[in-house]
C-alpha cells in the first residue's frame, strides 16, 4: 500500500477510504481535455475500475490540452491510447475501453456497471443523455463544461439532489466546442482535476460534495462564483416516468432550395432539417455516393470545413463529382438564425 501512503495519511482517506477507492468504479465519458487529467488523478488515487469511453481519434490539435496523448498517438483511438498510458501509471487498476459514443441504446446498460460518471463530453446531446441515464440508474455524475476562458462545474443527481435539467431545462443549438472557440489547455486541466476531486469525495463520503451548487470559474479574470441551484422535481419525474428524453438539436439552413451534403457522423449536432439535406458520414461515402445528385450544385459541410474538404476530394477523384462546393466555415456559417 506504500503507493497510496501519502493519501492514506489523511483522516479523510485512511485504510478504510483506500479500500472504498479500490472498490469503486468510475466511468469517464469522453477522454479529452477534461477526461485526460481526471483519469490520471483517479488512476493515481487507486480507483478500482475505470471505464474509458471515447469514439474519437487523437488529433495534433488535441495535444496542447489532452495530456495523456503524444505526437506518435495522432490518428489512434483516444480510449486505447489512454488505456496504454494509464496502465503504465497504475497496473493495479482494472480498465474497460469503449471506442464508441454513448447512445440512447447503450447508456443505461453501461452506466449501470459503474458507481459514478465523469462527464468529459463536448456536446449538449450527450450531457442530457448522461443526465437522464443517471436519473434512471440512480447514479451521481460530475459535470463540467467550458466556454473559452470560463468553466462550469457541478455534481448532479447526488443523493437525490438537483440534476442538469434542474439548471438548464431547455437546451440550445449553440453547441460551441473548444475547437470552434479556442481554449488554453490549462482550463480543462483545472476543471477536469476538480471533477476528479468531486469523484474522490463522493467515493470517500468525505467533505462537501458540490451538489446543489454550480461553480463558475473564469480563468482569465482569476474569479470564481458559486450559484445555489434547486431541484425541479417535475423535470426529474418526467424522466423517471417516460425514460430518456433525447435532445436532438435541429436547425434550419439559410437556403432551403439548395442541396446540401452533411458528411458528419450521425450523432453530431445540430441536425439541419429539410428535404434537400443529405446525411452521409465520411465512412459511408464510398458505399452511398450514388445518393448524391451529380447534375446540380451541392454544398458539402461538416463541423469546421475540414472533413468536408476531404470528402469532396474523395468524391471528385474516385467517383467523378464536379458539382461539389465546400462550406469553408462549417455548419455554423449556413444556419439560419
Amino acid at each position: 500500500m506504500s503507493r497510496y501512503d501519502r493519501q492514506i495519511k489523511l483522516t479523510e482517506v485512511g485504510l478504510e477510504g483506500q479500500q472504498k477507492l479500490r472498490n469503486a468504479k468510475v466511468l469517464l465519458v469522453g477522454v479529452g481535455g477534461l477526461g485526460c487529467p481526471a483519469a490520471m488523478y483517479l488512476v493515481g488515487a487507486g480507483v478500482g475500475k475505470i471505464g474509458l469511453m471515447d469514439h474519437d481519434k487523437v488529433d495534433m490539435s488535441n495535444l496542447h490540452r489532452q495530456v495523456l496523448f503524444q505526437e506518435s498517438d495522432v490518428g489512434r483511438s483516444k480510449a486505447t491510447v489512454a488505456l496504454e498510458r494509464l496502465e503504465k501509471q497504475n497496473s493495479e487498476v482494472e480498465y474497460e475501453v469503449y471506442e464508441e459514443p454513448l447512445t440512447i441504446e447503450n447508456a443505461e446498460n453501461i452506466i449501470n456497471q459503474y458507481d459514478v460518471v465523469l462527464d468529459g463530453t463536448d456536446n449538449f446531446e450527450t450531457k442530457y443523455l448522461i443526465n437522464d441515464s443517471c436519473i434512471l440508474t440512480d447514479k451521481p455524475w460530475v459535470f463540467a463544461s467550458i466556454y473559452k476562458n470560463e468553466g462550469q462545474l457541478s455534481v448532479f443527481n447526488f443523493k437525490n439532489g438537483p440534476t442538469y435539467r434542474c439548471v438548464f431545462p431547455k437546451s440550445t443549438r449553440q453547441n460551441i466546442s473548444c475547437e470552434a472557440t479556442g481554449v488554453l489547455g490549462v482550463l480543462p486541466g483545472i476543471l477536469g482535476t476538480l471533477q476528479a476531486a468531486e469523484v474522490l469525495k463522493i467515493i470517500l463520503g468525505a467533505g462537501e460534495v458540490l451538489s446543489g451548487k454550480l461553480k463558475l470559474i473564469n480563468m482569465m479574470q482569476a474569479s470564481e462564483q458559486t450559484i445555489n441551484i434547486n431541484k425541479r422535481p417535475e423535470e426529474v419525474e418526467k424522466i423517471r416516468k417516460n425514460g430518456i428524453a433525447p435532445v436532438y438539436i435541429d436547425c434550419d439552413l439559410k437556403n432551403k432550395e439548395q442541396w446540401y451534403l452533411d458528411v458528419r457522423e450521425v450523432f453530431e449536432q445540430p441536425k439541419p432539417k429539410g428535404k434537400k439535406v443529405l446525411s452521409i458520414p465520411m465512412g459511408d461515402l464510398t458505399l452511398r455516393y450514388q445518393e448524391i445528385p451529380n447534375n446540380q450544385e451541392v454544398f458539402v459541410f461538416c463541423q469546421s470545413g475540414k472533413r468536408s474538404k476531404n470528402a469532396i476530394e474523395i468524391l471528385k477523384n474516385e467517383f467523378g463529382f464536379h458539382n461539389l462546393k465546400n462550406v469553408e466555415g462549417g455548419i455554423e456559417t449556413i444556419i439560419d438564425g
Binding site: 481535455g33 463536448d122 467550458i146 466556454y147 462550469q152 440550445t172 466546442s177 473548444c178 480543462p188 463558475l216
Partner: peptide, 10 residues
C-alpha cells in the same frame, strides 16, 4: 444578478 448560458466545451 447573473446571466448564465449553458456551456458545451470539454
Amino acid at each position: 444578478v447573473a446571466l448564465l448560458p449553458p456551456f458545451a466545451g470539454g
